[in-house]
Write a protein that binds this DNA or RNA. Structure first.
Lengths: 217, 217
DNA sequence: TAGATTGTTAATCGATTAACAATC
DNA sequence: TAGATTGTTAATCGATTAACAATC
C-alpha cells in the first residue's frame, strides 16, 4: 500500500538499493529475498519490506523479489526514465572531472552544455562539448531550459546564477559549491554536495571513536 | 549533561551549526539565542538546545550563546584542533580540484602527499606537492602513516588500496570513488561521498514534487 | 527587578523492528 | 503439500518538540 508521505530516510536508502540490485544483476542473481538483501546491506529485512511497501508490491510470497524487476521498479521510483537534459556551469578541475567521468547516461541524463568564464577554457572541447562563455547562459536558457544544472564553479556567483536558472525554468540544481543557495520555492529542487560537511563528519567520528560502536547480533 | 551515545542525526547537523556560526561571526554578531539561530537555520530552538546539550553547557540563561565561544566549542567537538595529516590518492581532475581548491587548513588538515599512476601526472607539481607514483605508497606509509587518505582515483583499485591504508594505520578514509569499501573494522572510519546517490536523490524529488512539500507555521 | 533564555524533563511524533496471517 | 517469504499491522524504540523551573 502506498504511503502518502515518504520519509527522507526512505528516499536516501533508495539509491543504495539500486546499487546493490545492480551488483546482484551483474552477478546474474535472479531472485533475492528481503532477508538475504538485508544481510548484504547490513539492514533488517523488515526495513526493506517496509521501505518498498511505500511504493507498491514488488515481491511474491515464498519467492522473494526478482532482481531485474525490482531494479526496474526502484529505477522508476527514482525517476530514471526518459532522458532529461543537464548543463554544467564551471569547467575547472571539478567540472572537468564530472564532464569526463560522471556517467550521466546511466541515470537518464544527457549533458548538453558546459559553461565557464575563463578565456583559457571557453572554446575548448571536452567529451564532445564545446565550453561556452557563461555570459551566453541567460540567452541559451531562453529557448528550452535544461531539467537540471550542475554548479561546479567557484562559490561567489552561485546565488546569482541559481536565481537566473530558477527564473528560466530549471527545476533541479545539483550544487557542488560551498555556498548555500537562496530558497527558490517548492518547484526548484536543490541537492547540495558539501565536501566540507562530509570531511567534518569523518573528523567527528575519528575524534570520538566510541560513538561509532555498533554490533550485530 | 552529556549523553552517552550521540545520534547520527545530531552529528550530521554539527557541520551546519559550524557554517552558520562562521557566517554570524563574519558579520560580527556577538551573541545569538537558540530561537534566532533556529529561525536562521530553519529548525526549532528546542532541537538546537537539545543537540548542544549532548556535549555540554555552552549558553547562559537570559543571554543566549556567545557566537565566538560556541563556534570554538563546535569546532572542538568536530575534532578541528591540532593539525592532522592527509594524503590524496588520484590526481586526475577530481584529485586536482581537491588539491587546488579544498581548504584543508580550515579544518586543521595538512595535505602532505599526492599519488597517481599516470606517468604524465607523476612528477608534476601542484599546490606545492610533487605527485608521487602510487607504487611508492606502501613504502611511504611505513614511516608514519597520515591520519586520513582521500580516495579520488578511479574505483577499481579502491578496495585494495583501502586495505593497504588500513593495515598501515590510516584511521580515516574519505572516499570519492563509486565503490563501497570493505569493512576495515571499528578503528578505520570511512566517509563516502557518492555523487550518484546525491544525483538520484535530486532525481527523486524532481519526480515526486509532492513529497517535497513543507510548510512553516 | 523584570524579561529573556537556558538546560532538562516530559509529551509527542515518527521510524524501525518484530510478529504473523496470507499465499506463492 | 510444506516451506518460504511476502505485505502489513502492532510493538518498540528513538528523535523531535513542547513545557517549564532555574537563573542570568
Amino acid at each position: 500500500m502506498r504511503k502518502n508521505k515518504i520519509s527522507h530516510n526512505v528516499i536516501l536508502r533508495l539509491p543504495r538499493y539500486l546499487r546493490y540490485l545492480e551488483e546482484l544483476r551483474s552477478k546474474d542473481v535472479v531472485r533475492i529475498s528481503s532477508g538475504e538483501l538485508g544481510r548484504l546491506m547490513g539492514i533488517t529485512a523488515s526495513q526493506i519490506r517496509q521501505d518498498l511497501s511505500c511504493f507498491g508490491e514488488f515481491g511474491q510470497q515464498g519467492y522473494g523479489y526478482n532482481v531485474e524487476m525490482l531494479l526496474g521498479e526502484v529505477a522508476k521510483i527514482l525517476g530514471i526514465r526518459r532522458e532529461r537534459r543537464a548543463i554544467i556551469i564551471g569547467a575547472g578541475n571539478l567540472g572537468r572531472a564530472i564532464i569526463g567521468k560522471f556517467p550521466f547516461e546511466q541515470y537518464a541524463f544527457r549533458l548538453t552544455a558546459a559553461y565557464d568564464v575563463s578565456h583559457e577554457i571557453v572554446g575548448t572541447e571536452m567529451a564532445g562539448l564545446t565550453i561556452r562563455h557563461a555570459d551566453t547562459l541567460a540567452a541559451d536558457l531562453q529557448d528550452s531550459p535544461p531539467d537540471i544544472a550542475v554548479l561546479t564553479m567557484s562559490g561567489e556567483s552561485a546565488r546569482t546564477i541559481s536565481t537566473l536558472l530558477a527564473d528560466a525554468g530549471v527545476r533541479g540544481i545539483w550544487n557542488f559549491t560551498n555556498q548555500d543557495l537562496p530558497n527558490m520555492g517548492p518547484d526548484v529542487i536543490v541537492e547540495n554536495l558539501h565536501f566540507s560537511d562530509s570531511l567534518l563528519t569523518l573528523s567527528y567520528y575519528m575524534t570520538h571513536p566510541k560513538d561509532n560502536e555498533l554490533e550485530k547480533p
